[in-house]
Amino acid sequence: MGAVSACEKWLYENSFPVDGGNFDDAGRVSGRIKTILKEMGIENDVVRMAAVITYESEINIVSYARHGMIRLHVLPEYVEIEVVDEGPGISDIRLAMQQGWSTATDKIREMGFGAGMGLNNIRNFSDIFHISSDVGSGTRLKMIIHIQQEQNR
């Protein structure tokens, strides 16, 4: 599986680059991460949450950033997904987190994106969600999904 670990507890660690502007390629990294997690035997609910988080992250990078990186860390207790992009950043994170708020162009909306749901989806499908951004530099997201899940998630 190619797991390279600098930390003894990591079951898997890898980074996946995503190019800005390439809508045709969107879904490639999230599909790969889903396959990796399934092959590791991670429970289905966790895999589905990771799929939503990584797909929306890919779409955000493709839509708004020049370049980005999605980092996947799998530990026995949780899956950690970090997303770092080089792009315009977000000046008002509270506004950006509001459902329906979006700066998407018409081109992005025509493809069914840009409804102002992406960051909310990422937050809602995470157990722990953290976002920070520097205008003119980029945005960083960090999400945790616990592997020991409640039955009623």
């Binding site: 809508f23 045709d24 969107a26 879904g27 490639r28 999230s30 599909g31 889903k34 589905r48 799929a51 939503v52 797909y55 493809m111 069914g112 994106f113």
Partner: peptide, 15 residues
């Protein structure tokens, strides 16, 4: 009604 190729990615990711 969406015909863009990202519908395939969504269908695949969501099984």
């Amino acid at each position: 009604r969406q015909i863009h190729q990202n519908i395939v990615a969504v269908a695949s990711l969501k099984d």
